[in-house]
Design a protein around this nucleic acid. Structure first.
Lengths: 342, 342
DNA sequence: ATAACAATTGGGAACGTTCCCAAAATCTGC
DNA sequence: GCAGATTTTGGGAACGTTCCCAATTGTTAT
């Protein structure tokens, strides 16, 4: 299975490899007729450039690394869709790795990508601080990185894409309040995730404003899976906390909580209303469908690559911080009637 | 950001590049002390081999392409987990592409991977026949391919991994029958997917056996998303078909159908029991949780890479066809009581 | 027709490795 | 102590490309 190389073309046409290369790279220093002849022969012989040779020459791998904490929910899938949208047809390939919510795995993935000399990395962290030093090192060694969704603390000056977690959370919690709920639980994710804290802050702001805040209402989960939400709900109920609504950190947590409550014969939303934050199909796949903060995930992916391409093109460009606008979608988990449904 | 090369080491130690290379590749023709000296220097200088150079030399890219129809459900994610399990720590990198259930995109992905000279491709088809010729061409040009889950017709002699769709479906449908259901709908996927037909065959076998078959009970969906299931259910009900159970092609379809019915105030499983086929977390994320045929997805991924590595090592090895054993899990969507739940 | 210049082409180094072959160093046994 | 065998090292081609520089061809103005 010998592959056609530039040399094969040059032999076939009795031209030098330089000339063939010129034709293929659209160099101006070549006669039109020659170029056409070469392109024709290339097509006829089925020539495909050898990426490794290109990479070796240029020192660039023409590939972009994407690291995500998980792919169990459609969240990352949507982001990837956005990334592919921008990159399809370009010279860049995408290499994807999952950290499985484990900072050590994230570390391995990062080093693997760097070793592979990707032209840049797009990453959604799984722990706010654990690999902080490594990010800086990789950046210093010259690989640009873009952060989205779960971003690092602000003392790391890097391009970022995300939505305004705090103010959007406030709005969503105010919606719960507007439906008459007074005892709203914040099912927050682990504190090692920045957004969990941001969204909790937004929640608190709303509760303070309406003088509804109570420490007992805030409960932290140990992880981000629906199972962790069930555990947390169990704890909450055993503790005897009274509540009539839940604002959850993500769709998965909201779903775990909702199922636990349905099992215990609670009515949603009459007994307990549930709102979440995410933007994945999951919120529509359960019953009743969830009111949620729908983040523009595809757009987030697109934006992230664009920021990266900008950085690759011009490494000294300023680090931009793009904030996207999420949409609040009200569904039956907070509103009993059929109206208002998307 | 100049990277450390073998030449840097050789200059640093006043050795030839050949010797350094020998030390690094664990060649026996080298003095122990020399090797140690080199390895130490390599570590000290932070040497990392340049993959492109390796690839150029060997003609291999040390990467494996994985093509999946979608990543909205956790199905592909589980498969990837298995693939990563086997490959992590190996020299192979994984490149993932989604076909978005579009055979044309699948085609582009395949050609892209071939152009990138992946060492092999692991694929889950999105259409049984559309790219049939291309598979053969790629195989003929020397890139091994492994098929899993949705496989091509048997006239393509390739390694495959899957579960026994037909007989397992029969068993699951018999479970529905055993709970007293008599009008069992087969919510089958599109006929362009082999497994949809296989599972439908298994379904039919069970219904024939108990003399319960009725053409009206079989309904094809236009796609594999939960929305397609809702559409199909709407059609079915408008047609006036009476039914008391559903056997769905996948979790997503089952969920779509279930939500549609919950919305219409059907009780699950009392009015309509629902069973599906898949093995993803989705079946546990909904309420009531779904009885489903749980496929060993991680194992399926692992097996697929193993078959591929076998093929890469020995291209003329026989094409194996591995059939994995799924597990039937009975949950509340078919059994009202709390017992029997996993 | 010819010098001067522009357009086009060819030769060959370079990217970072491996590996074949030859050279050098070391080790045998007598 | 030396021929011959063996171990260890170095030189340099090769993988497929690009790109600099030089060589060739074509064009223009005198």
């Amino acid at each position: 299975m010998k592959r056609v190389t530039i040399k094969d073309i040059s032999k076939h046409l009795l031209l030098s490899t330089s000339t063939v290369s010129r034709a293929l790279t659209d160099d101006k220093n070549i006669r039109k007729e020659t170029r056409e002849k070469v392109l024709e022969a290339a097509k006829e012989l089925g020539y495909k450039p050898n990426p490794s040779a290109l990479n070796l020459k240029s020192g660039k791998s023409n590939s972009i690394g994407v690291i995500v904490p998980e792919m169990i929910t459609p969240f990352s899938s949507k982001i990837l869709e956005g990334i592919q949208n921008v990159l399809s047809g370009s010279k860049f390939r995408v290499i994807v790795a999952q950290s499985n919510e484990n900072p050590e795995t994230e570390r391995t993935n990062l080093l693997m990508m760097e070793e592979f000399r990707v032209d840049g990395i797009i990453i959604n962290l799984c722990h706010e601080t654990y690999n902080h030093k490594l990010y800086q090192e990789i950046l210093d060694r010259g690989t640009p990185m873009i952060f989205f969704d779960r971003i690092p603390p602000s003392n790391l000056d890097v391009p970022k894409v995300l939505v305004n977690d705090q103010s959007t959370s406030t709005t969503m919690v105010e919606h719960l309040i507007s439906t008459g709920k007074k005892r709203i639980v914040n099912l927050m994710g682990p504190k090692t995730i920045r957004n969990a804290i941001q969204r909790a802050d937004g929640y608190k702001k709303a509760l303070y404003k309406y003088k509804l805040f109570d420490d007992d209402l805030v409960i932290e989960t140990e992880g981000t899976s629906f199972i962790h939400a069930k555990e947390a709900m169990k704890r909450l109920i055993e503790k005897g906390v009274v509540f009539d609504a839940i604002f959850a950190f993500t769709d998965s947590l909201a779903i775990g909580a909702m199922n636990y409550l349905l099992e215990k014969k609670y009515r949603i939303p009459e007994d307990v209303a549930i709102a979440s934050f995410s933007g994945t199909e999951l919120s529509q796949m359960v019953f009743p469908p969830l009111s949620t903060v729908e983040q523009p995930l595809v757009e987030m992916g697109e934006t992230a690559v664009e920021l990266l391409l900008e950085k690759i093109k011009n490494p000294t460009s300023k680090n931009r911080f793009v904030q996207l606008k999420p949409e609040l979608i009200f569904r039956r988990s907070t509103i009993a009637q059929q109206s208002h449904q998307k």
